[in-house]
Simulated scan of single mutants.
Amino acid sequence: MLLRHGIVYDGGQAWTGAHHAWLARQYLESPATRMAFDAEHETVLVTAARRDRLDQEITKMAAESQFAEVVHRLGCLRGISTLTGFGLAVEIGDWHRFTGDTIGAFVGLVPSEYSSGASRAQGPDTQDRQHPRQAAAGRSRLAPPPGLPHRQDHARSLGPGTGGRSGPRRCR
Score class of each variant (00 low, 15 high):
2 L>D: 02
3 L>R: 14
5 H>W: 00
6 G>V: 11
9 Y>T: 07
11 G>Y: 01
11 G>T: 09
12 G>D: 00
12 G>N: 00
13 Q>F: 10
13 Q>K: 12
14 A>C: 14
16 T>R: 04
16 T>Q: 01
17 G>P: 13
19 H>D: 05
19 H>P: 04
20 H>M: 11
21 A>I: 04
22 W>F: 02
25 R>L: 06
25 R>H: 13
27 Y>V: 15
28 L>F: 09
30 S>H: 11
39 A>Q: 04
40 E>T: 13
42 E>G: 15
42 E>Y: 03
44 V>P: 01
45 L>V: 08
46 V>N: 05
46 V>K: 14
47 T>K: 13
47 T>F: 10
47 T>A: 13
48 A>R: 15
49 A>M: 13
52 D>L: 09
53 R>L: 12
55 D>W: 12
56 Q>N: 12
57 E>Q: 15
58 I>Y: 07
63 A>R: 15
64 E>G: 04
65 S>V: 13
66 Q>C: 10
67 F>V: 11
67 F>C: 12
67 F>M: 13
68 A>E: 02
69 E>C: 06
69 E>N: 00
70 V>P: 01
72 H>K: 09
73 R>A: 09
73 R>H: 10
74 L>W: 05
74 L>D: 00
75 G>C: 09
76 C>M: 10
77 L>N: 04
80 I>C: 06
80 I>E: 03
80 I>T: 11
83 L>A: 11
83 L>G: 05
86 F>P: 06
88 L>T: 02
88 L>N: 02
89 A>N: 03
89 A>M: 07
90 V>K: 08
92 I>N: 01
92 I>T: 05
93 G>P: 06
94 D>R: 12
94 D>H: 08
95 W>L: 05
96 H>I: 08
96 H>N: 15
96 H>F: 04
97 R>A: 03
97 R>C: 07
99 T>Q: 07
99 T>W: 00
99 T>F: 03
100 G>P: 00
101 D>V: 10
103 I>K: 00
105 A>G: 12
107 V>N: 06
110 V>H: 03
111 P>E: 08
112 S>V: 10
120 R>H: 12
123 G>V: 04
123 G>R: 01
128 D>I: 00
128 D>R: 02
130 Q>F: 01
133 R>I: 08
133 R>G: 01
133 R>M: 04
133 R>C: 09
133 R>S: 13
138 G>H: 11
139 R>K: 05
139 R>D: 03
141 R>D: 07
143 A>M: 03
145 P>N: 11
146 P>C: 09
146 P>V: 13
146 P>N: 04
147 G>Q: 01
147 G>R: 06
151 R>M: 09
154 H>R: 15
154 H>C: 15
155 A>W: 04
156 R>M: 14
157 S>W: 06
157 S>Y: 00
158 L>N: 05
158 L>E: 05
158 L>T: 01
158 L>Y: 00
160 P>M: 08
161 G>F: 07
163 G>R: 08
165 R>D: 10
168 P>S: 12
169 R>F: 06
